[in-house]
Each structure stands twice: as C-alpha cells, then as structure tokens.
Amino acid sequence: MTDINDDTIQAAGCVLWRRSPVDGELEVCLVHRPKYDDWSHPKGKLKRDEEPLTGALREVAEETGYDAVPGTELPTAHYLANGRPKRVRYWAAEAGTGSFAPNHEVDRLLWLSPTAARNRLTQPRDRILVDALLDALRLA
C-alpha cells in the first residue's frame, strides 16, 4: 500500500493486443485522447482502494469497449503529471469480446502492428511497453 503522506497519483493500464482478424499478425491497441491530443495505451487513475489490475481492466473496458484477459505485468511508468509524481502499472492483456464506441475520453482507437504502434505513440516512455509486450509474448 502507499504511504498516507505519499502524493503520488496511482494509475494502471494495459498494453492491449490481439491477433489480426485479417492475417493473424500481432496488433496493439492505441487510444487517442482528445483532451491531450495524444496516442497512448489505455490507462487511468485508480479509484480509492481499487486494486491496480482491477483498475487496469476497468480502464481498458471504459476506454476501448473491450474485455481483456490479463497476462504478464509490464514495466511501471513513473513521471510527473501537472507537477505531481505519477505511477502507472501496466499489464499485457489480450483483447476479448467488445467493440469501440467513441466517448468523451477517447475519440479514436487503432489496431496497429508493433512497429506502427511504437511510431504512433506520443510519449517515448510508452514505446518501451510495446517492446516489453513482445518479450512477454515470446516467453509465454
């Protein structure tokens, strides 16, 4: 648990993946957030006393419309958000059933090859998560 005096924003998300329905190749899901005009992995702040994995799966469902089957935990991101430290825990997660509908948080969703996803991501720190996903899937 976090220290009561810790000002760190706690968040969680997933690097959501699937096999292409066209050619069976690996695809990574990226979401576009109009508020920040950025492309990222689905993620969000945890609710009070919410377990990180539970929050990660909730955020995937809210932002993408897909259920997700969690896999390996990926590297945790640490950075400043509006002057406050932020910690985002990530998991590899295979997309289950669902479909995307634009909403106020996410207006676009793309399924891209790992290379295209790496190139589209706005934050360099998010790119290492694509590599970590590939490593995790190779070991699975």
Rank of each mutant, 00 (worst) to 15 (best):
N5T: 13
D7W: 07
T8L: 05
T8S: 13
A11Y: 01
A12S: 14
C14E: 02
C14H: 01
V15G: 04
R18Y: 07
S20E: 03
P21I: 02
V22F: 09
D23H: 07
D23Q: 05
G24V: 07
E25R: 14
L26G: 04
E27K: 06
E27M: 08
V31N: 05
R33E: 15
P34N: 06
P34T: 04
S40P: 00
G44F: 09
K45V: 10
K45D: 13
R48L: 13
D49G: 03
E50K: 06
E50C: 06
E50S: 04
E50Y: 07
P52S: 11
A56I: 05
A56E: 05
A61R: 15
E63F: 02
T64A: 08
T64N: 08
V69P: 00
V69L: 14
V69H: 12
G71H: 11
G71W: 11
L74Q: 02
Y79Q: 09
Y79R: 12
Y79V: 01
L80I: 09
N82Q: 15
R84D: 11
R84T: 11
P85R: 15
K86I: 06
Y90L: 01
Y90A: 00
W91T: 01
A93I: 04
E94G: 10
E94S: 12
A95K: 06
G96T: 07
P102L: 08
E105S: 12
L110T: 07
W111V: 04
S113L: 05
A116T: 09
A116Q: 11
A117H: 06
A117M: 06
R118A: 12
L121F: 07
Q123L: 14
P124W: 09
D126S: 14
D126E: 08
R127F: 05
R127C: 07
L134K: 12
L134V: 15
A136S: 15
L139K: 10
L139Y: 00
